[in-house]
Design a protein around this nucleic acid. Structure first.
Lengths: 176, 176
DNA sequence: GGGAGCATGTAACGGGTTACATGATTGG
DNA sequence: CCAATCATGTAACCCGTTACATGCTCCC
């Protein structure tokens, strides 16, 4: 069984196009990041190499390339592996790594004023993230092939919106 | 700079008591898990050893112990390091690793019926998690020392509640 | 000319896991 | 007596990162 990040990268290749490693990284940053993780560039290349060894993707040199460029395409075996994985029982838990909550958890240690500042900074960040998700949602409308990605974006938008609102509430509690 | 998980473990020791590695693991599973991560048992012991080397905690053998048992206590330096970390600028992003959303994202690959089943399973899981958080919140009331942990639990409860509701919504979209 | 973006990787390392080893105590 | 829980760690491994190396192309 491959790690989920391998399936995430394989998944990017199921949306039809051939992608370079560079493309994969860009798409991961733009979408995967919100509900999974955006792997480092070097990680992407290593993962693609492994997928190729396993016969789940194939590579070819880009035809129009003076510049060096390798295009990856998912194979039938790859598509089958991905499809199987999608509906296999989910073993992993949902993980929320919230560095700001982790700090607030230790609020008894710190200066209240500075703690407020940390939360206020997060308030801004959380709103910016929401805005980015909204941009993604807008970009995915009118493309029937992106129906599921859009569904997911709307799902996790709810979650990040809850985070933003809960930040406000926590700040309210801190003032008192 | 130490990794956040080191501060998380150090943080557990700021709540007053001396803890064994075993205790740390238990508390991490019971609380940290919801908004950060519960490290593996072996990881806990390694991290405690490192904190001791750095002089942020001290160890002593448990006094009443026939059984082998080592109790860790935070030092002044440890408390200072934790306090400083709490209010230092937050560099890390909030990370949501949602294995179910990741699968739904590839919904175009799979059998719709089985995909529904995956989401329904998550629906159950999400509710159970909410219930566990509620238990934690209840357990933390009437203890003034747990004011901030409770604040955090209420914060992240909102987030997981949003996940649970969004799962329902997504399932609704799948039926149509 | 030079900076931003395109493009691909290798090497070294750290964070974190699973598997394994070992043994005491408690309670049904 | 036996299972569950308490209790501590080591070894091997994998996932993923940062730092680094390299070079092209586009546009100001």
């Amino acid at each position: 069984m491959l790690p989920n990040t391998a399936y995430a990268i394989l998944g990017l290749l199921t949306f039809g196009r051939e992608l370079s490693g560079y493309d994969v990284k860009k798409w991961a940053d733009a979408s995967l990041r919100f509900f999974w993780w955006a792997p480092a560039t070097s990680h992407v290349y290593r993962e693609l190499a492994r997928l190729e060894e396993l016969g789940l993707v194939t590579v070819r040199a880009a035809p129009d390339a003076q510049r060096r460029k390798r295009l990856y395409r998912i194979t039938d075996a790859g598509r089958a592996a991905a499809a199987e994985w999608v509906t296999a029982p989910v073993a992993e838990p949902v993980v929320l790594k919230h560095p700001v909550a982790l700090r607030l958890w230790l609020g008894h240690l710190g200066d209240g004023e500075q703690l407020r500042a940390v939360l206020e900074e997060h308030q801004v960040e959380a709103r910016r993230l929401l805005w980015e998700i909204d941009q993604s949602i807008v970009a995915s409308t009118d493309d029937a092939a992106l129906e599921y990605p859009r569904l997911v974006l709307e799902w996790i938008r709810t979650i990040y919106a809850a985070d933003a609102e809960a930040t406000d509430t926590a700040l309210g509690h801190l003032s008192r």
